[in-house]
Every structure is written in structure tokens, then in C-alpha cells.
Amino acid sequence: MIIYLLCFVLFLVGIYGVITKRDLVKIILSLAIMGYSANLFLILFAYKKSALYPILEKGVDVPMVDPLPQALVLTSIVIELGTTALLVSLVAKLFQKYRTFDITKIRRLLG
């Protein structure tokens, strides 16, 4: 249970960063932290005691861990990278227009 709680603490650190930080780069990093925590949580559910990786080998018959959450997380990691690239390009565009990363200053410039 302590491992699940630690994973949840990691998610809360990400939420803290999204709420309190004013720098757009730091907000991107906080979103990345939340993504790590969610992926890790799914894989923690899949683990079975004294089981091996879900890849068959010749002549070896051992209990294996749950392959379904691993497949889901594999796609999730790729999508996370795509969204990170999109966020980076949007932040770069905002920097070109307003010459700052501070969201409060950007809001003031909008009027």
C-alpha cells in the first residue's frame, strides 16, 4: 500500500506545479510528472508476485505478469511525447509574440 501512496504523492507534486508555477516551461514539466505517475500506477496494478515478463521462451513455463496494462501504457507514452511536442511549439509561438514565459504578464498584455 505504501507504494501506491508514494505514486499518488508524485501525482500531487505534479498538480502543485501546475497550480502554483507561473512559468510556462515549468507547467510543461509538471504535466510530464503527472503523466509518469499515471503510467507507473497502471503498471503497479499489473505486477504479480514471483512472476516474469510476458514474453514466451522455448521450454520455459513460469507464471507471467499481466500484459494488458503494459499494452495500454505503451501507447500512452507515445501520445504523451506527441502532446509534449505540441505544447513546446505552442509555448515557442507565445514567446515569439509576447517575449516572455510568465503567464501573469501575458494575461496583462492581453488587456
Binding site: Y53, V65, I77
Partner: peptide, 9 residues
């Protein structure tokens, strides 16, 4: 956690 696929990616 026995997920070598995910570790590589």
C-alpha cells in the same frame, strides 16, 4: 516490475 518493453520505450 517486469516490463522490459516499456523500459526500452
Amino acid at each position: 516490475l517486469q516490463a522490459p518493453d516499456l523500459a526500452i520505450v
